[in-house]
Nucleic acid binder design. Sequence first.
DNA 1: ACCATAATTCCAGAAATTTCGAAATATTGG
DNA 2: CCAATATTTCGAAATTTCTGGAATTATGGT
Lengths: 114, 114
Amino acid sequence: MTEVNIQVWAVDALGALAHETRLAVFRMLVTAGPDGMIAGTIAESAKVPPSTMSHHLATLERAGLVQSERESRLIHYRADYEGMSRLLTFLMKDCCQGAPDMCADIFASISCNG
Amino acid sequence: MTEVNIQVWAVDALGALAHETRLAVFRMLVTAGPDGMIAGTIAESAKVPPSTMSHHLATLERAGLVQSERESRLIHYRADYEGMSRLLTFLMKDCCQGAPDMCADIFASISCNG
DNA sequence: ACCATAATTCCAGAAATTTCGAAATATTGG
DNA sequence: CCAATATTTCGAAATTTCTGGAATTATGGT
């Protein structure tokens, strides 16, 4: 993926997360782990009509941040860790160049333990 | 900042970056370093009218991603590394819990050297 | 005081996003 | 095949965002 294209994609991904409901859903899915959640349950948890949630989930999926898989009548949605990783890496790349200390700070503040 | 409030802020910050021009400008400012850039130069570089750019810069500043400072007739804009750090940390927190391996992958792929 | 420069704010039209009920599609069970 | 359930797609109104010319504010030089 060329530099210009990844930036176009990043705008989409950021836009997908730039919405109260969608960000909440995405975080929920990340926390839910690899099994993900059923579409209906997601809508119920977020207190929005199924139709509305369907649009939001489609937006997240188009942006490559979630994946869906049908299992009989239910549709499972799970976070796409690779997409998220790509986004975070993209955002950090420039920061690490412009502000060498910043990445270190972030690494320290997270340390992958919470 | 409470959990719910940081998420509200995060939506704003993500929305600020979810625009082709604004993302390009933000990355430019990060790369430019602590001295930042003059408003007019930014508009010129991005090939948008000063008025339009002023709106975009205000959006980024409201979101806490850039800072401005007047120096005589010129206004310097610089990336707000603390804001960016807060956003990246926020996004990573959930990921590190839901996908313990993911943060490690990101750390490896960056390693703060480019 | 006046003029020139730099940038913002005002304004309003254009474009995109958000919302959700109703209708359509997909799947299973009887 | 028919009914029930899960979800998406359609459609259209409401809201928000984006854009940029014109007017305004701020600063410095002569």
